[in-house]
Amino acid sequence: MIKSIFFAIFHHERGPQVLHQVPDGSITPSPPPSTDPPPLIDFDHISSHIIPKQELCDRLVTICTNKYRLLGYPVCLEDRRYERNEFIFNFAVVLDEDAEFSTYKSVVRKLAKLFKALEEQSGFLSNEVTRASVYALIEQVLEDLNNYSECMIPINESNTINIKLFPTYAPPPPVKAWHVPVSTVQLELLMDATWDLTMQKIVPHIDGINSVRRISELADADYALTKKAISHLLYYGCLTLVDIFAFSGIYAVTADISSLLADTQMQEECINYVRSSESTKIAFSDVFALYCSLSQGVTLKKWCIDHFPRLKGIDVRRFIGFGIVKGVIYRVHKYPVATNAASMPVPAKLATFLKGGSSFDEICTEMQVGEKKVLELLEGCDVQIVHR
């Protein structure tokens, strides 16, 4: 949230000056008598950065002071009509120091470029009459961006302040060939004819079962473009990535298993998702006990045999998938490690995966063979299987 917006210039006699500030008194003290709270910052202390030398103009400036962050974009215009042949101004915003500020960089850039154009066209900022409207403009910008994350404010018949704050997301995790994308929204309802062609081809094959490599093959799409499209969907939270489901896999509970016990809404979601049909009735206590029974050293196949009577009405694939997505269980991966892979009687491509950094999922996907085939190729070789 924006704490303040202000407009400052370099006065040829008095130096850096704040001409307009919203709220009043937020940057420089209001003249007495005034009931405004004290300023958020000491403007005199940072004025040389808000109105810098000409060499630092026309670029983004970020300043942290008194637990606040200031973003500005000082502009310098050279012309003989100005005192000292130049006019320097800056529209700056004030945010909390620990607030996400990347989306506000475009705000100060747009304000600077818009008012630079207005000044060049008509002297909008250097003229005291037209400059008086700046206060109302920045006041409306602050209110609209804080309340609606966008603004469209007319300045005159030809110019409008159009700004929209777009949310920022963390970079998506790397997409690997053996990852399985699971949709968190109904992609078919979001997709239209304007979507990327690769995206349109791969979406029908995103079913929580197919790996990225398999999706690329089924959609007859370039693998690199498929990865990029899936990464794009990940960025906007439309997908999550899980491991390839296999009954030979090993699963165990995480420390977050307690969150399932405490969250009644998640419990209801879990029951509705993992049951094999809508008419099936299962108790959450049974589902929770099954999750807690997963442990290292026991394959899913053996676990299903041991708990077969209790799995009535439960879809095992969805049971595992829900636990992975919610973070209450995790997959224990297997990594083959060879002491001297180069001298082993195995295919050269397989030998490159025997250094301890490649899981069986990666090996099987890249070699396009099953785990059983990989184990047959490694039979009789000096290879250790590490679970982690």
Rank of each mutant, 00 (worst) to 15 (best):
V316Y: 02
D192Q: 07
V129M: 04
Q121M: 08
C238W: 06
P32K: 06
S285K: 13
P171A: 08
V94F: 11
G123P: 07
P31C: 00
C57A: 11
T194G: 00
N147S: 15
E362N: 03
L234N: 02
Q121K: 15
P38G: 04
A99L: 12
P204E: 12
P173I: 12
E139R: 14
D315L: 03
D44C: 09
R388D: 08
V203R: 09
I363R: 02
I257P: 03
Y236M: 07
E120W: 06
A342F: 08
P33V: 01
L261R: 10
V18C: 08
E86I: 05
S216G: 12
H307E: 06
N85L: 10
D222C: 03
V108A: 13
E139M: 10
I314Y: 07
S211M: 06
L187I: 12
I27W: 06
K372I: 11
T299R: 03
D24R: 03
L354H: 04
A177E: 11
V242W: 01
V175I: 10
E143T: 15
D315F: 01
S293G: 06
T130A: 06
T62N: 07
V374L: 09
K116E: 15
E97R: 06
S358A: 12
G297P: 09
R275F: 02
S34R: 00
I51H: 13
T352S: 15
R318D: 03
I209Q: 10
R214H: 14
H20C: 05
Y330P: 00
Q17D: 09
E120P: 00
L189S: 09
I5Y: 13
R80K: 15
T62H: 05
P39W: 03
Y73R: 12
V141P: 13
L234P: 01
P171T: 06
C64A: 11
I50P: 12
P181A: 01
V274F: 02
Y273E: 04
F89E: 13
I305R: 09
S216Q: 02
V374E: 05
R317V: 08
T62W: 00
R214Y: 13
P33A: 01
R318T: 01
L225M: 06
S149M: 11
V274I: 11
P347K: 07
L354W: 04
S133F: 14
